[in-house]
Design a binder for these strands. Structure first.
Lengths: 244, 244
DNA sequence: GCGCGGAAAATGTCAGACAATTAAATGTAA
DNA sequence: TTACATTTAATTGTCTGACATTTTCCGCGC
């Protein structure tokens, strides 16, 4: 009945899997109520703490939400875009930081994906998106801005670019790619000169989107990708020279 | 000290957040051992079951692994690409299925991202990737293949295309986009005629990659995107007519 | 009809106990 | 001395039972 001799222990993982499968396969629909903890405990023949551990696992993945009180309980949760963004970003950031991903690799992936957004963004960008981009460009020009703030502004600029494509699925997929780069970028230092260069390219991108010109936007993004790469290589060389 | 009057209850969530932050911010490194459950309970002034619920939350996100026995405990886990793929796919699939994402939206996102891979794939594709693609094309031509198997083969083909770009970060980002489309595609039916069309385009893509020809590959992908869109619209119209 | 208070149901938390597992320490014999 | 078996201690996994807290519903009095 419940063979699965694979993992004799970790009952809570098995129970979590069973419920997760039911949700993913559509056997439980959004806002449907799960049996109470006591009922689940009886059903799976385990104690309530074990069931609770399983439910917490699901809650951590935003698969369920719980509500206290009478007629409360655990409910299948509609996964919102915001939460999905958040999970995406956490996972991407950890993946990059824990696997010693080369700066070039992450950079290449990020700009390849962003360039995929450019044609759509050129077509659909709203005044709102343009305003956000202009505002960030302005911030990036302020003297005395710390490297970290400069990076944060860069991320906001690029997210606006992605969002301008007007496709929430695309925004979701790229949230991780854009945000996860920030820790890698934070390790670099930006000279006055390189900031000027970047701001110039950002301006070019915003102008191109405003003019609905996809090919110029793509060109500027390619330039920006290339320039970012050289920045990374410079930093590496400098470090190598220092180590010698 | 630990006020946080925002959420009076849900201690396990707070504890999980505290530990998660420590990991994400790099205060704990890979393979570092967390304090034992009893120690954590004392540290946070809660009971062991509460600590355990927090740890299960982290385990669900693959942030830690636990080991029983003396000198066992919870350890910060290196997030592998495989696990990251898996989480990506689960989240993407749920996001699409729970938010009534339009077929066109998902389709647009997927092909925009895939086309971003095309130039890199044309440059770097290995014989292995080409062989996988050819094999799937062959499978797709077999008569009597179920729609579901056809879709599964389609996914494998496209993942080979993405992997051919030789950038694991890109592969990770696209895993969700490609796989999450499968349930949406499974709802369609593929006539003999449409399968022929798709197989033709797949062959064109494989040929272009083999010839290192990025622009043809891109063109074929654009055609495939357009054709897939019309398939989806046909299906919608047919359903609408039936409902009338 | 309308507020109000208690009952009931459910999750959140705690305490203590035992089982299972594992690595290190210890002891023993060749 | 070395190799192997045994004990031991630390730690997670699970269970039982209890109490606290939150929230809804129902009936009661007005």
């Amino acid at each position: 009945m419940k063979s699965e001799a694979k993992t004799p222990s970790d009952l809570s993982a098995q129970i979590a899997k069973a419920i997760r499968d039911a949700i993913v396969e559509g056997r439980m629909i959004v806002d449907e109520r799960l049996p109470s903890e006591a009922e689940l405990a009886a059903e799976f023949n385990v104690s309530r703490p074990t069931v609770r551990e399983a439910l917490k696992r699901l809650a951590a993945q935003s698969l369920i939400r719980t509500q206290r009180g009478a007629f409360g309980g655990a409910f299948v949760k509609r996964l919102s875009y915001e939460e999905a963004y958040g999970q995406q970003i956490t996972t991407s950031t950890l993946l990059l930081s824990m696997n010693a991903v080369r700066f070039e690799t992450a950079c290449e992936a990020r700009y390849a994906l962003e360039r995929a957004c450019a044609p759509l963004a050129a077509e659909r960008r709203s005044p709102d998106h343009l305003a956000t981009m202009r505002a960030e460009i302005h911030r990036q020009q302020q003297p005395g801005l710390s490297d970290e703030s400069f990076c944060a502004s860069d991320v906001t600029f690029h997210r606006a670019l992605v969002d301008a494509a007007g496709n929430p699925v695309l925004s979701y997929q790229l949230a991780g790619a854009v945000e996860a780069m920030q820790p890698l970028m934070n390790m670099k230092t930006f000279t006055e000169r390189s900031r000027e260069e970047i701001v110039g390219l950002h301006t070019g991108i915003a102008d191109a989107l405003e003019a609905h010109d996809a090919s110029v936007a793509d060109q500027k993004l390619e330039d920006l990708a290339a320039y970012t790469l050289t920045l990374g290589q410079d930093a590496m060389e400098k470090r190598a020279r220092k180590a010698t």
